[in-house]
Design a protein around this nucleic acid. Structure first.
Lengths: 161, 161
DNA sequence: TTTATAATGGATCTTCTATATCCAGAATAA
DNA sequence: TTATTCTGGATATAGAAGATCCATTATAAA
């Protein structure tokens, strides 16, 4: 299980946008050159980011991409969910198997009497907990986090000389 | 990004083994019936678990599988790493790209002067942090965790009647 | 209004991995 | 020795990721 290359490209592209001047669009050519990916492939990824409101795109001369909101309002989780999708990390494949009859608990049955009793797999419960941990961390880190870190290292280097 | 079905099968198989009597091997036939997976596919997964010392396997009449150690000594992380592999969740694809020259920091260069300076991508650093969060949680949950939970629900059901 | 430029989206192609099955062979307890 | 059960190699298939090409659309500037 691994994050896709597209997620890698997306994050780095957004950092590039965050780094560039405000109201100065960055074209796909410059982005692809900076990241070392083909324009055609990267443009697919940028389209996704636009459809989800992470970036804005302007066609035509002097057009290009820019962040749709402040860099500290774009979390790692946002980006990952756009590219990787929003399915949960783990889903039981055979909820009707014999073992699940035993392992499943009556989910939310106590509180909500109306719904038909939904069985929740105990394995899935643990995995969902793990996913929440992961999401928590990814929500706390933004594009701005990276920009800040990069700036720190920059000044540190400068002080040495 | 999702965990594979194999991980699902592996976890459920181990729970089945943990649930059955000690020194009573469980054959692939019983396991595959319980989980609703084909014998041939499940046996591949069990082989992996055996190679990594999670289960023991005995061929021949009355043979089968059993846990190689106590259920509370088999963590979710153990199982996942056997099935999914041990590569990190995120790896930068183009460490030689232009952007990385700026984004990378000198990794461990201060402490270990001998090594050639290895650049560590700042994006990767954040993602590695996220992975550690995930691992932490998965280390804290074992096959026994599930068995205990299942037992709780069992007695709760019994008390109702 | 025209034009050069840049993003968009559909179609397609390749490669790789997850999933799955089959079978011959090895190992073991009875 | 034999019946049984695991093992591992070979192979097949489907679907996703990665990647490219091109016709179309949209825009700002001349």
């Amino acid at each position: 299980m691994q994050f896709s290359k597209s997620t890698d490209y997306a994050l780095h592209a957004l950092i590039h946008l965050g780094h560039s001047e405000r109201s100065n669009n960055v074209g796909i050519k410059e982005l692809s050159l900076s990241l070392g990916v083909s324009e055609s492939y990267l443009s697919k990824i940028m389209s996704k980011l636009r459809q989800d409101g992470i970036v804005r795109a302007v066609p035509g001369v002097k057009g290009g991409y820019e962040l749709a909101r402040a860099a500290d309002q774009i979390t790692f989780l946002d980006v990952i969910q756009v590219i990787e999708g929003r399915q949960q990390l783990f889903e039981c494949s055979n909820t009707s198997s014999r073992q699940h009859q035993l392992l499943a608990e009556e989910g939310a049955a106590q509180r909500d009497q109306k719904r038909p009793r939904e069985k929740v797999c105990l394995v899935e419960k643990v995995m969902d907990g793990a996913e929440q941990q992961l999401h928590q961390y990814l929500r706390e880190h933004t594009i701005q986090t990276i920009l800040d870190e990069a700036f720190k290292h920059c000044t540190r280097e400068a002080n040495k000389k």
